[in-house]
Every structure is written in structure tokens, then in C-alpha cells.
């Protein structure tokens, strides 16, 4: 049975001119990167653009990837910074005009009333402040790898743990309120 090639090997193969190696990396991480972008930006089109931008930047600067480091952390960091740029642009435009970016889906409060647990949890995550939402999303994607999360966000590990603790507390409160509303 052939083991899946490691990310570092795929990067090395890409740099030697093998396009299929990078394609494997794309297939491995495109959903996770899109998930991070969507959770951060709350907009399907912007999340798609940010995801494409992240992979394009990664491909162009693949030579700067440090062997031995984690590709997932690297691509998530690129994606996160792409999302931050878009959020900053959005805030700049918001001071000049009011772009109608909200999609027509019901708001987080309405969604929280839905019976489906996944829907309720997503709605609760959506209701978190952006910095907590991102750290919870990365926690979901990378598990308890706090160092990786801190590396992606460019924050000290202590701050990441604090944000994660507060995010979970808020999630529990939101989910508890949703249950009370249902009953």
C-alpha cells in the first residue's frame, strides 16, 4: 500500500517541475482554505477569490517555503492575510459608502433556532467577533496545535489560548441561549 506523499515532498517535486505534485496539495487543502476564508469573510465570492489568491501566491512563492515546516500552516497564513486585506478594504469602503454585502440567508439569530446541531453551531460561530471566529475556525482545522494557530495569526501563543478560551465561552453561551429560545 502506497502511503500518501508528505507535503514537503510534494513541494520539492513541484519545484523540480512536477505540476501534479502541486495539484495534490491543492486537492488536499482547498476545502480547508475555503472554509477558513468563508468563516472569516462571510461572503461566498470573496472567499472564493481569497482562496484562489492564496493558492496563487503560494505557487509563486513556493521557493520561500522552509523545508521542515508545515505546509498547512503556511497556506493558512497566506489565506488569512489575504482575508485580512479584504476585510481592511471592506472597512475602508464602509466609511465612504454602505456596500450591501450581506447574503439573503437568515441571520445568525434566526439560524440558531434551527434544530440541526451543525447549523446551530455554524450560526453561533458566525455570531462571534472576527478574531474569535478565526481562532475557532483554525482550532477546528488544526486541532490543538496552538503553535501552528499562533503562527498563522501572527499572535503569541498565550493570546491564541486566551482567544480560544473566550471564543468557547461565548459559543457555549450562544448555544445555550439558542436552546432556551427553542424551548
Amino acid at each position: 500500500m502506497n502511503a500518501e506523499p508528505e507535503d514537503g515532498n510534494l513541494v520539492a517535486l513541484t519545484l523540480r517541475g512536477n505540476p501534479d505534485a502541486f495539484a495534490t496539495l491543492v486537492v488536499r487543502y482547498d476545502r480547508a482554505v475555503y472554509h477558513l476564508a468563508y468563516r472569516t469573510l462571510h461572503d461566498v465570492e470573496e472567499a472564493r477569490d481569497a482562496t484562489q489568491e492564496a493558492f496563487f501566491k503560494a505557487f509563486r512563492s513556493l521557493r520561500t517555503f522552509r523545508p521542515g515546516s508545515k505546509f498547512s500552516t503556511w497556506i493558512f497564513a497566506i489565506a488569512y492575510h489575504a482575508c485580512c486585506d479584504r476585510l481592511n478594504r471592506r472597512k475602508r469602503y464602509a466609511s465612504e459608502e454602505l456596500p450591501e454585502r450581506a447574503d439573503s440567508a437568515p441571520g445568525p439569530e434566526q439560524q440558531a433556532i434551527a434544530l440541526d446541531e451543525a447549523t446551530r453551531l455554524r450560526a453561533a460561530i458566525d455570531a462571534l467577533p472576527e478574531k474569535y471566529r478565526t481562532v475557532i475556525t483554525l482550532f477546528h482545522l488544526q486541532g490543538k496545535q496552538y503553535e501552528e494557530i499562533a503562527s498563522v495569526l501572527g499572535l503569541p501563543m498565550g493570546t491564541v489560548k486566551t482567544h480560544l478560551f473566550r471564543a468557547k465561552e461565548q459559543l457555549r453561551r450562544l448555544l445555550g441561549e439558542a436552546e432556551v429560545t427553542e424551548s
Binding site: T14, P19, D20, A21, F22, A23, V26, V27, D30, R31, Y34, V44, R48, T51, Q52, F55, F56, F59
Partner: peptide
Amino acid sequence: PPAGLRASILMATAY
């Protein structure tokens, strides 16, 4: 992800 995202990423990068 939206339909076609993976294909568009691959066409802009590896392929």
C-alpha cells in the same frame, strides 16, 4: 466550496 473553484485554482497554478 463553490463549483469550479478547484479547477480554476489548478488552471491558474499547476496547470
